[in-house]
Design a protein around this nucleic acid. Structure first.
Lengths: 250, 250
DNA sequence: AAACATCCTTGATGTAGATCAAAAAATCAT
DNA sequence: ATGATTTTTTGATCTACATCAAGGATGTTT
């Protein structure tokens, strides 16, 4: 089990059959396994804002994101909300062995998920070792991302939080397009200010103010509300507080 | 692959051979697998305060905690630190497929770890499917814990953070002792005020103040600096902001 | 085009927790 | 015990972000 940094390797998101395919082409896939997965999968589409499942609700499938963006969030009794995960194409949702969702899963944009019925998927996992192994790798990546996010939530300033989020989305977006435009990066923010604030542990007003501040200083430019232009990625990166190498996030 | 809530099931910490053993008695273990694990494992002891590995350093083993408590933390260039994991007996550290540690691993108390050399462990994982499956379960639990911690870091007040941490440690401690003393709980805090502050995303002064405040209100009592008595666990639980059921943490 | 609903921005003010500073406990060494 | 070191507590002050409040954009419905 050799592992290489998985971040920028995502090659295909075709969801032809095997969840492994989503993140990188899987050399281990055997034809018959593909066939089995083919038999237990189905697609579901959601519109931006729609909820896929609420925390605590029954969730009899596991799924991976084909297109669009989904969010995982937790809510406290009094309504305080914290986003705990951002699912981009190829990311996995749901958990073998658990029949209810631990989080609210919401479509941030229009969303297509490739779902696998949970029981057959679990059986398949038992009979097909490399699926568990691949899932383990993906889960470990998510754990790294969650821990990097803990650093952000616990120790970064509002400005650093915003810069970090923008860098993460920009990087992920750029890697999807395989466009190596060193210089200017452009992308559509898939999150509202409110969603950003829920992710970053801030209020939406603070998010808005910090965005304005970054704009005034020329670190970012905006077209309309959601389209972001980053004239110099490295310069923005310096505002994140991270060491330049960048991390595991998303 | 049926799963049950793993929290309070921890039965043995004997580290006889199989990492699976640490969390719950493993019904699947076959004698020969145990034998192989026996051959690649070794023990290491650390004193409180000692560092097991620094982030970025070579780490040619994976390990599970036998006794004591270890912490995982990340540091920013300017010295801001955030703890991202607390390893209690039976918890797992290190990651198959990665040769360097992503975090500082530090002994919070005297610590014994059961180490497995990485390469043979990875090979074993490939040839022994249920190890990957068990590791996946454990990693998913850790991911849940990390996400619950994200909610704490992003949205809870200082007071709620302290109450949460105390409840978590108390609960874990109680489960280790299998002592069902409903009423008064007693345990030694394994963390300094500074370590607590690093875990909670606070300063150590704030931790101290909130501890004093809880003490003055009779929610906790202290003997010396580290020994804590919780006269009424449910009462303290109400200060955490969590819904009463409690979560996945630690 | 007017009315409405979202989403975003900006301003004024308040406060939880950080920071700075020092003293008190506890722990350790001689 | 006595002094030295580490850890914790407490106080005074400051500030980053939250909260409260209002006003603009933008898009949608009729």
């Amino acid at each position: 089990m050799t592992r290489v940094k998985p971040k920028l390797q995502t090659i295909g998101h075709d969801c032809t059959a095997c969840p492994i395919r989503h993140r990188a082409v899987c050399a281990r896939c055997e034809a018959d396994e593909l066939q089995v997965l083919e038999n237990i999968k189905y697609y579901r589409s959601f519109e931006a804002g729609q909820t896929v499942v609420w925390a605590g609700d029954n969730m009899d499938f596991v799924a991976s994101v084909v297109t669009g963006i989904a969010t995982l969030s937790q809510t406290m009794e009094d309504g305080r909300r914290q986003m705990v995960g951002l699912l981009l194409p190829s990311d996995f949702a749901g958990r073998p062995g658990r029949s209810t969702s631990a989080y609210d899963v919401t479509a941030a944009t229009n969303l297509v998920m490739c779902c696998f019925r949970r029981k057959p998927f679990e059986e398949l996992m038992l009979s097909t070792p490399h699926i568990a192994q691949r899932l383990l790798e993906m889960t470990l990546d998510e754990l790294d991302a969650a821990r990097e996010w803990m650093l952000l939530l616990g120790r970064k300033t509002a400005r650093e939080k915003i810069a970090s989020l923008l860098c993460i989305i920009a990087r992920r977006d750029a890697s999807l397009q395989l466009s190596q435009t060193h210089g200017e990066l452009r992308f559509d923010l898939p999150l509202t200010r409110e969603a950003m604030s829920e992710y970053l542990g801030l209020t939406l007003e603070t998010v808005s103010r910090q965005m304005s501040s970054l704009r005034k200083q020329g670190l970012i430019m905006t077209e309309g509300k959601r389209h972001i232009i980053i004239p110099d990625f490295d310069q923005l990166l310096e505002e994140t507080g991270d060491d330049s190498d960048g991390g595991f996030l998303v």
